[in-house]
Amino acid sequence: MAPEENTQLLIETLTSHREEFLAQWGAIVGEALQGRLSVAEMRRELGELYEAILQAIAAGGLDADGEAYGETRSLLIELSRNRARQGFTPTETATSVFALKAVLEPALTGEEHGTRTYLQFAKLLDGLALLTTEAYVRTREEIIASQAEQLLELSTPVVQLWKGVVGVPLVGTLDSARTQVVMEKLLQTLVDTDSTHAIIDITGVPTVDTQVAQHLLKTVVAARMMGAQCTISGIRPQIAQTIVALGIQFGDIQTNASLADALRQAVREVAKDAEDDVRGLL
């Protein structure tokens, strides 16, 4: 039997049993919803998908990657994205595509040559279900990326500790993207609050490697070029050992073991500057 006849059988079956199949498909998928999606919404999605698949088979055969399946693919990607956001697992999403196989199986395998047609249809649905998994993963990655970005903002609070002194407590692992954000925010806060002293506290940073040390050094140099002093505090003994072992030159950069020491020193310097200013006026 020629492939065209298989396609023809499939189209006829899908068309003549449309209402029946959709009801069955909806019933299977509906069981797994558990209230995360309304039944009406789900039925609308499946209805659209059914029509798209039917039209694609009529137009271009059974190749899921073919041009005819453009509409089907975009519907599936959309469906998968929504499911990802609603908290469905990729298995659940893929299963709702596979469910159509179970629906068609009895109708097709009863026919002459139906088994072969069924297998081809099953292969098509496999391809389409794979697509939903791919879209699902991509959507999750987007969500993770946007959360990482939000975390970046959240995890770097630059606070004013004293008049003329701002500080940023760093917690967690530092990478270049994060250090860039910290650096930018710290320097901007110096300008906004007219502060001459900045303290970067790294008590909460588990390890300092060459790259992180480089970033810290750059921040200090940038602050200095803007006319502010920058101190690094909270250097734990292990970190001091690592820095020395790595041979990183901290040069003339001020460092303190504790934030309290760094703050005391900064406040003293701010006070001294103010005193000098008064003396200058006399």
Binding site: E184, L190, M225
Partner: peptide
Amino acid sequence: MRPAVAMTLVELGLSLQGVRTALNLERGLK
């Protein structure tokens, strides 16, 4: 000097050694 400018200069490898800096005009005069 703007923060973005300072960060760019550091990356460029220019540290303006020997140049005194201040956050703003008022602090510069002081």
